[in-house]
Nucleic acid binder design. Structure first.
Lengths: 231, 231
DNA sequence: CAGTGGTCTAGACCACAAC
DNA sequence: TTGTGGTCTAGACCACTGG
């Protein structure tokens, strides 16, 4: 190949052989040692190349069984979930935040079930708006578990949004994200550019930390919003 | 740590130090050499551990600048986009496929613009249904560029769905995926369990191969469908 | 049981970017 | 200029798993 063959070049060649060359779906590849020899690289390098191609979903690797080209590549979409502020400012638009309402209440039943809270658990309920160039971009409907995060009760979220406050307060957590289509309800109609019943693209995110539910949020987007990615 | 310290153990410890321990957001970590020494592993192993933690979005690594804990972890959602058949069968349900309509036509203007086709380009237009346990699960509305894929014109898609045919025919490609909410149109009302105007969760996928548009597909899902992932 | 991938090591050179 | 991560090598042992 070249004077110094890097694992990236090896990867490119492997992908080429899969997509254009002789290694059609289902092909059993030669072993790492043999391939390393053919490419003139060390087995370490060949291993890394194969591993990364495998992570891209093209290959299925198993000990003893060998490396096989997947019948259908595992197509995986990767979405970065930026803080809204970053998402908006990246487009060059001005970002503005507003708190619509804030209340400390006893968790309703559906929420208790959804978050796994104890009976009569207290939660902070927040509704916020995120604007791009003065136009409402996203409506945030958030519940925070006051037992897990007592500081949230005393936080006044009028200046700093709960999202930014949370990422700075809770170090990390397990997250479940869902994308769904919802019919616009009264709150969405009031704050976003929707008519009642319009299809709204929503992201729902539930967060745990050390097995305790921290927060559940629904992000409703303005008309025509799409979440897009390439690969 | 243990007798043999693996890079996974090192990773776990690094993540722990970030999330619970002394390495708060913004911290500059010691260099690889120093860390390797502290953990009693080779630099190669430490490098891999740091690289993978970095890929998870916790760390920002730059030559000369060093390794720094991100202020806010890059939260990224990864969705596997299985073939519908696999998605349905994984739930234990029976899968059934049906072709609703098939036509070879001149591409309408909006499609030419969207896919970048020449004037009067021919396309194959397919509408298909995917059933789970006899209930319509997904409505597939697909356009295939006949110039890029002449074989598609003669394919009769009554038994094998276009998705499965395509993954077996076109090796790989660049893909753009969008998630969006759409109002149910007549076709969706007819085939899915929707009323006119209902919010429908749709996935739109455009595919290119060697800079030529191959196919554009919209997948409309049944009521209440969510696309979910954890991390 | 034996073959294949998974991983670790020690040492080396290099490329990039901050100072 | 120089420190830091990026990568390659050669060799070795190990773990899983298919036959």
């Amino acid at each position: 190949m070249a004077e110094t063959t890097t694992f990236r070049e090896v990867m490119a060649e492997i992908v080429a052989r899969i997509t254009e060359g002789p290694w059609g779906p289902g092909t059993l590849l030669p072993g790492e040692v043999e391939l390393a020899e053919e490419f003139g690289v060390s087995r370490t390098t060949m291993n890394r190349a194969l591993r990364e191609v495998s992570e891209q979903g093209f290959l299925d690797r198993r000990r003893k069984a060998g490396t096989r080209v997947r019948m259908a590549p595992i197509r995986q979409a990767r979405f970065e979930m930026p803080v809204v502020r970053a998402e908006i400012e990246k487009t060059g638009a001005d970002y503005r935040y507003a708190l619509v309402s804030r209340a400390v209440v006893v968790a309703p039943d559906w929420l208790r079930a959804r978050m796994g809270l104890k009976a009569r658990a207290k939660v902070v309920h927040l509704v916020c708006l995120h604007f791009a160039d003065g136009v409402a971009f996203q409506l945030e409907d958030r519940w925070i578990n006051a037992s897990a995060l007592p500081q949230a009760v005393e936080q006044d979220f009028s200046v700093v949004g709960p999202n930014e406050w949370l990422v700075a307060t809770v170090p990390f957590s397990e997250v479940e994200i869902s994308f769904l289509a919802q019919a616009a309800d009264a709150l969405m109609v009031q704050h976003l550019d929707h008519a009642l019943g319009d299809p709204v693209f929503c992201v729902e995110r539930a967060t745990w930390w050390q097995n305790a539910a921290v927060t559940l949020v629904t992000l409703a987007h303005r008309r025509g919003y799409r979440m897009t990615t390439r690969y």
